[in-house]
Structures are given as structure tokens and as C-alpha cells.
Simulated scan of single mutants.
Amino acid sequence: MAIYTARVRRDGEWWLVSVDEVEGLTTKVRLLEQVPMAVREQLAHIPGEFSDPEDAIVMVFPEDDSQCVLHVKDLSERVRKLQYEEQRAMRQAVRELSLQGLTFRDIGEILGVDFKRAMQLAK
């Protein structure tokens, strides 16, 4: 699975797209949400270069890489990692508290979640 960086720049009603990893690969779209599919379609037209463009991960960045956008993307990635870590820790806590004989209602109260969520985390 390959990762591609799509640089976008607004031009009237269109977004102009270039891909860092493939010299000369450009396209244009009306909506930013269309960028990943448009890049994958362009990759499919390059014979023998890419085995399965549908599996390509396309990351969209503004052409100027403004610091505030990069900061937001960095924070979003850190939040995603922390949420994953939180879920893993919650599952572990539910297991340990359950082994101590606590009910899911008590576990939910201790962890600040609904008892139904505590039950889900135990699975």
C-alpha cells in the first residue's frame, strides 16, 4: 500500500491537484473530497507503475503548507492515537475490575461510562 501526497491549490471553481511522489501527475476537481478518487484514477492510467491504485492512501495538503493547517493535522493525528490508547486502557480496566467481582454498573460508574458501554468493552 503506497501513500501519496496530493497538493491542492484553488483556481476559480476548481481545485488543481499535483502529486509529490509522481512527477507530472496532475488533475483537477470541484470538491476537496474528490481528490483521493481523482488521484487514484490518474494512478491507474500509468501502466505497470502501480499494482493497485485503489489501495493507495492519498493525503491532501494545501500547496502552501500553512503552519496552522499542519498544526491542526498534527493535533488530529495525536488525538486519534490517544483515542486508540484510551480504548485499549478502558478495555484493560474493565477486564481487571470485572475479575475483582465488580458489576458492569459499578465499572461504568468508576470509568465514567454507561454500564452498557462497560459491557461492550468487556467483549
Rank of each mutant, 00 (worst) to 15 (best):
M1V: 02
A2S: 15
Y4E: 11
Y4L: 14
R7N: 14
V8K: 03
R10Q: 09
R10P: 02
W15E: 11
V17R: 08
V17I: 12
S18V: 12
D20K: 07
D20T: 03
E21G: 05
E21R: 06
E23Q: 05
G24V: 00
L25R: 15
T27R: 08
T27N: 01
K28Q: 14
V29R: 02
V29Y: 04
R30W: 06
L31K: 07
L32D: 06
E33D: 11
Q34W: 00
P36Y: 00
P36D: 02
P36T: 07
M37V: 10
R40E: 01
R40F: 00
E41H: 10
E41I: 11
Q42N: 05
I46Q: 10
I46C: 13
I46W: 03
G48Y: 04
D52M: 00
E54Q: 04
E54Y: 03
E54L: 01
E54P: 01
D55N: 04
D55Y: 03
D55G: 01
A56E: 02
A56R: 00
A56M: 01
I57T: 14
I57M: 06
V58M: 05
M59K: 05
M59H: 05
F61N: 05
F61A: 00
E63P: 00
D64A: 12
D65W: 06
D65C: 03
C68G: 00
V69Y: 13
V69H: 10
L70G: 08
H71Y: 03
H71M: 14
H71C: 14
V72D: 09
V72M: 08
K73N: 11
D74W: 10
D74R: 13
S76W: 03
R78I: 03
R80Q: 02
R80C: 04
K81L: 11
K81R: 10
L82H: 09
L82Y: 10
L82D: 12
Y84V: 14
Y84T: 15
Y84A: 15
E85A: 07
E86A: 14
E86C: 12
E86Q: 12
A89T: 10
A89H: 08
M90Y: 15
M90G: 13
R91Q: 15
Q92Y: 07
Q92F: 08
A93H: 05
E96Y: 11
E96P: 05
E96V: 15
L97T: 13
Q100W: 13
Q100S: 15
G101F: 09
G101W: 08
L102C: 10
D106G: 08
D106Q: 14
I107Y: 06
G108I: 04
E109K: 13
I110G: 03
G112M: 07
G112Y: 09
F115I: 07
M119D: 00
M119Q: 12
M119P: 01
M119N: 05
A122I: 06
A122G: 07
K123I: 15
K123G: 12
